[in-house]
Nucleic acid binder design. Structure first.
Length: 479
RNA sequence: GCCGCCAUCGUCUAACGGUUAGGACGCCAGGUUCUCAACCUGGUAAUCGGGGUUCGAUUCCCCGUGGCGGUACCA
């Protein structure tokens, strides 16, 4: 059996799309699963839609996701000779022809056909132009394209690797434009020529390509080439079930990346949108995916992008990280949120270890741990525990502060605090009593946070007592 | 309009003729807990409709319906 070779062939018209990443992932997985090659090709034949930086963005994000490609990327705009020769070959074989029809005429034609409820396709107006007529047109420098001369009867049947047998009636197909008047090839010509040239064995691409696949197969036949296997992936959908697009949320991989989603989570999530392992397993790292991936388990129907589940995956992987890794990942987010003193690694480690279970995504982190870096705002009305009066809360806070200040031990660790505070808490109404809530709130300024003793252990004796006193004094000031 | 693809809980999906239709996310309840998170336990909720085929259809066939995609000198 010959080598399995797949490719990802994005058009650099914008940032890498999450759907594109999934297509890349499936191609990559299929190649790796078979010990084959995964290639990258940049389809930049539409000169009007190029976006600066798009190629780099695609490459960066593939790398971020861990999808490495073999060889240098193939750039279509650098291979115009190849396409021109291919088109000429077809013209010489009378399987393609030059067409001088204007866009206006084509538009008119379409409208008439639609009005008559006929399939809309090119009427073959230029199909039988004589050699002198073509020569005259070219001599006059009239804009022209090269069209594929499709057989006009019969059917094209092929077996899609995910959909099974698919059949198209040739009478409904168009004499597709192969070369545009600007001298660049269209997708159809370029992708067929390149896939053949790159010896691609399996074309795994989005479902939007299914309707043009018969034309591609006919092109392979026209060239006398063997067509690759095709697998058309189900679309990724918006919540309203339309094709996933910008208007209902983030679609650029970049956006998930900067929001603080881990590549493990994003990749795991998109893996399962359109593929399943046939078991109940949900958590996959790259090597496991490679091992288990197969085309047979790809789904046929579109999948709605479900952000809640992505968040869940992110939480799973975030909690699997070591504190060290998390500190490294977190620093840029803290810095950009204006938290400056992040150089004390030991301190950061303690803070993050405490909050790890609460991180949804990395961009949430600054807001979550801010109070470890500057004294929190205290809302006095939130300070009292249940029916407690503010003055009582203040009183308790002073007592705690005093108690902690009188700590005989040198250490101020969580173990010390627990053993020493035990009696104190018991004497003041127990764990469900009036101590823990005001203390925790005074230290964190948050209705929800880690426990007060844990926070105190990280803050240290001095800062802990200072915050307790400060919160207590706010109550006095108000009364 | 024409062509094509698709159709199981709200969402992602399993069940390749015989299951109390399974799992996950979400949601709800309980446990744990000063709070939150995490974790554990339980619950909620689905085969688009109609015809066939079959002893038996989620599963196979046909017809509807619905959704989506394509119908560009865009990919």
């Amino acid at each position: 059996m010959s080598e399995i070779r797949t490719r990802f062939a994005p058009s650099p018209t914008g940032k890498l799309h999450i759907g594109g990443l999934r297509t890349a992932l499936y191609n990559w997985l299929y190649a790796k699963n078979h010990g084959g090659k995964f290639l990258l090709r940049i389809e930049d034949t539409d000169r009007t839609r190029l976006v600066e930086g798009a190629v780099q963005n695609i490459i960066d994000n593939l790398r971020w996701a861990g999808l490495s490609y073999d060889n240098e990327p193939v750039i279509q705009s650098q291979r115009q000779d190849l396409y021109r020769q291919a088109a000429e070959e077809l013209v010489n074989k009378k399987l393609a022809y030059r067409c001088f029809c204007t866009p206006q005429r084509l538009e008119q034609l379409r409208q008439i056909q639609q009005a008559k409820k006929l399939p809309t396709h090119y009427d073959g107006h230029c199909r039988n132009l004589s050699a002198p007529e073509v020569a005259a047109g070219l001599a006059d420098q009239r804009p022209s394209v090269i069209r594929f001369a499709l057989p006009q009867h019969g059917t094209v049947t092929f077996t899609d690797q995910v959909r099974g047998e698919v059949r198209f009636n040739l009478a409904t197909l168009d004499d597709q434009i192969l070369m545009k008047s600007d001298g660049f090839p269209t997708y159809h010509l370029a992708s067929v020529v390149d896939d053949h040239d790159m010896k691609i064995s399996h074309v795994i691409r989005g479902e939007e390509w299914l309707p043009s696949t018969p034309k591609h197969i006919l092109l392979y036949q026209a060239f006398g080439w063997t067509a690759p296997h095709f697998a058309h992936l189900p679309l990724l959908l918006n919540p309203d079930r339309s094709k996933l697009s910008k208007r209902t949320g983030d679609v650029a991989v970049d956006e998930y990346r900067t929001a603080g989603y881990l590549p493990e989570a994003v990749v795991n999530f998109i893996l399962l949108m359109g593929w399943n392992p046939g078991t109940d397993q949900e958590l996959f790292r790259l090597p496991e995916m490679v091992q288990q991936f197969s085309l047979e388990h790809i789904n046929k129907s579109g999948a709605v992008f479900n952000r809640d589940k992505l968040d869940w995956f992110n939480g799973q992987y975030l909690r699997q990280k070591s504190v060290d890794e998390l500190v490294t990942l977190a620093r840029p987010y803290l810095l950009s949120a204006g938290i400056k003193n992040v150089d004390d690694t030991a301190y950061l480690q303690q803070v993050i270890a405490l909050e790890q279970k609460r991180i949804g995504k990395l961009s949430d982190l600054p807001g979550l741990i801010e109070y470890f870096f500057s004294p929190p705002k205290i809302d006095v009305s939130a300070l009292p525990w249940r029916k407690q009066k503010p003055s009582e809360a203040a009183q308790i806070l002073r007592e705690i502060s005093q108690f902690l200040g009188n700590f005989t031990q040198k250490d101020f660790t969580i173990q010390d605090l627990e053993t020493n505070m035990k009696a104190f808490v018991r004497d003041h109404g127990g764990a469900n009593g009036p101590v823990l809530w005001p203390m925790r709130y005074a230290l964190s300024g948050r209705p929800a946070s880690p426990g007060p003793l844990e926070i105190a252990a990280v803050l240290g004796r001095q800062e802990t007592c200072r915050r307790l006193e400060r919160a207590a004094s706010l109550v006095i000031d108000q009364s």
